[in-house]
Structures are given as C-alpha cells and as structure tokens.
Amino acid sequence: MRMKSQYVFVIAVLAVVALYFIVRSLFGLGHHEGAQAKPTAPALPSVQAQMVPEVVRQYDVVVRGRTQATRSVVVRSETAGVVAAAPVLQGSTVQAGQVLCRLSVDARQAALDQARAGLKSMQLQQQGSVELASRGFRSQTQVLQTQANLDAATAAVRQGEIALAQVNIKAPFAGVFDHRDAEVGTYLSPGQSCGTMIELNPLLVVGDVPETQAASLKVGAPATARLVSGQVLNGRIRYVAHDADPQTRTYHLEVAIANPRLDVRSGLSAEVHIGAGSGPAHLMPVSAMVLDSAGRQGVRYVLPDDRVAFAPVTVVEETPAGVWVTGLRGPVRLIVVGQSFVADGQKVRVALAR
C-alpha cells in the first residue's frame, strides 16, 4: 500500500527536529547559549575631561562706556549789546580768558570817563575839607560827608570798569570752543549764549557698573580704555557713585585720562578694563558651562573616584582663549564633553579630551 504524500511530509519534519536535538546534545550547544544569556552589568556613561590648573590672575572689571568732556559750559553774556567781533572760530582750541565774543562798547567808555572825572573832583574836595578842618574852618561832620562822596565816586568808577569789561565774553577755562551761538551783528541780552566750551584735558571715560561689581572698584584704581578706533588709553578712576540708578541698579563710574593734545574726542565708544585685585582663577572653554537644577551657572568636573560633581562659578573675564572663572579650588578634571548628560554623584568612564 502506498503512503499518502501528506504523511511523508510530516514524517520528514519530525525526523529533522529529532536530528537537531540529537546534534545539539552531542556538541553542548545548549550549555553555550545558556552561558551567553547571563545578564551583564550596565555600561558606565562616558565623558571627556581635561585637566584645568589653578592660577593666580589679576581680576578685571569690564565696563562698556564712552568718552566725555570733563566740563561743558554754555558761555553767556552778562550785559546787553550787539556782537561787534567774533575772533574765535568754533572748534578752535582756546586758553582761559581768551575773548570768544566782543560786544559793542556803546556809551560804556564815556560813562567810565565821566565817573573818573567825578572821582578826581571828589578827591580834591576831600583834600580841601581836611585842610580846612585842621585850621578849624570845617567841622568833623563836613569832613565825613566829603569822604562819603569820595567813596561813592570810587564805586562809580569801579562800576564803569566792570560794565566796560563785560563787553568781552571770555573763555572760563582752557579747552575747545565747540559751538558758536552768536555771530557779528547778533543782539545779546543778559544770559544769552555766545557759544559752548568743553574741556578735554583730562578726558573722562564714563560708564555704569553692575551692583555685583561696584564694591570691588576703588577711587584711584588703574584703568585701561580701548576706543572703537582701537586706540588704547590709560587712566585712573576718579569717581564711583554711592547711590545706584533706581531703574538699572547700576553705579555711575568716571575714569580720568590725560589728553594733552586734545586729539581724543568726546562721545567715542570705549571698553574699559579696571583692575579689581587678584586671586585664584581657572581658564576654561565657555562651552563647558552648564546650569544646575537650581538655575545656578557652573561647571561639572570629575572627582578622584570618577564621580561627577557640580561647582557654581563666576565669570570674571572673557578672552578669545576662553573664560576666566572663580569658584573652583586647585586643579580640576573639567568635563568638556557630555557634561549635560550626567548627574551629580554619578560614576562615569573618563576619557582625555582631544
């Protein structure tokens, strides 16, 4: 009797399965797979770190500011009159006392001459009164009256001299006559402007210091200002405000810088570096900075037992090579790759940063 094809297929499959188990038991394949199935310990996270040494460094406070004239004064007329001469061009360097605007003299010289003539008359009267009094022909009261008249004549002369001098509107200090407001023919009333004077030597560099850094700045501390043109100027702090701006919570700062040739103008942008002492610091790439769960700025580093630690730091200076920070002590293995993917206290596998 011939067997059906379905039965032949089933018998063949069973034979193959039986043969598999026989061969597996003979060659110990089951034991080998069991050994491979044993659970393994989880791999440690990898980070890259670099050794950062501690160095003693001069701390600099960096302030964005601008140059400013030490003084800026609007020079005004003390009397009324028409401008008769304007001997100084605006933008010119002038000395203290130099005439900027000259008003018309008008009748002032005549009034002064009249006062001087009256003074001479009073002097003669006073001398005659004294002589007559010595002979008994004048009383002491009459002598005192002539002396009073003499004093009044003297005051009138002085008044005339002042009125005549006021036609010359002069520079109150040495500097630059920066802007002219009155030309020849302009009528000036008392208090009206002839022009503006600015003092550029010494020159000021002014800025505003954050409240976190104001305490480290002292009057007399050295400062270096780099202008937008690239020019570098050296000076010293002359003023640090004691009261903060209520809007910005910053303190006004003034640095005095010698400018004998008056070649540095007012209003130039400047970056001011001010020495604020020295102390331990670490130089590191800015990319190594992270924030902890409390929002503090800091870095993560590796302890001797290869566990991660966090330290808050303060940036004291930014340079092309990196940032200088304080808050660490001694040399540290700073995590520069992978610092954002590990937690404090976690053990890691450390590789040297390339």
Rank of each mutant, 00 (worst) to 15 (best):
T196C: 00
A133R: 14
Q90T: 03
A281C: 10
L164F: 04
H252K: 08
L124Y: 12
Q247G: 01
A343D: 11
R138C: 01
P285E: 09
R296Q: 13
S25W: 07
A155M: 10
A311F: 01
G327D: 03
R116S: 07
V74M: 12
L303A: 13
F173G: 06
A148P: 04
S340W: 01
P172E: 08
V228K: 02
Y7F: 10
P87W: 05
P312N: 07
A221D: 12
K347Q: 14
T93K: 15
H252M: 01
G298S: 10
T67S: 15
K38H: 04
E254G: 04
G175E: 10
E211Q: 13
L44S: 06
Q6V: 11
V74L: 07
V308M: 07
I257T: 02
T326C: 03
V176E: 09
V316D: 09
R71W: 10
S216C: 00
G267Y: 08
L204H: 06
E254C: 03
N201W: 06
A155L: 14
A294S: 14
V302I: 12
A86R: 14
V157R: 07
V308F: 02
D306Y: 11
V55C: 03
G322T: 04
R238P: 01
V272T: 05
V337F: 01
G34C: 00
T40H: 05
S193A: 15
Q95A: 15
I198V: 15
S293H: 11
V61R: 05
L119C: 04
L14P: 03
E78H: 12
G330M: 08
T196K: 14
D344V: 11
